[in-house]
């Protein structure tokens, strides 16, 4: 059971990493226009960066 000593921190670390990415997406306003993002995938025009604010 000693392996838990590593595994628990590792799993929490990975989860925290996901959380940090979520903060990043939130900060860069990626949830402002879910409808539009769903439709834009059909348009064939590439737009790499979300608007800067």
């Amino acid at each position: 059971m000693n392996v838990l000593v590593y595994l628990i921190p590792v799993s929490i670390f990975l989860g925290a990493l996901g959380l940090l990415f979520f903060f990043y997406t939130l900060k860069s306003r990626q949830y402002e226009d879910p409808e539009g993002d769903a439709q834009r995938i059909l348009s064939g025009i590439y737009d790499d960066a979300p608007p800067e604010d």
């Binding site: 929490i12 989860g15 925290a16 959380l19 979520f22 903060f23 939130l26 949830y31």
Partner: peptide
């Protein structure tokens, strides 16, 4: 609200 929800989701899963 979304930030709090994300944090709660993270905690809930772990």
């Amino acid at each position: 609200l979304m930030m709090r929800m994300g944090v709660a989701g993270f905690g809930m899963m772990n």
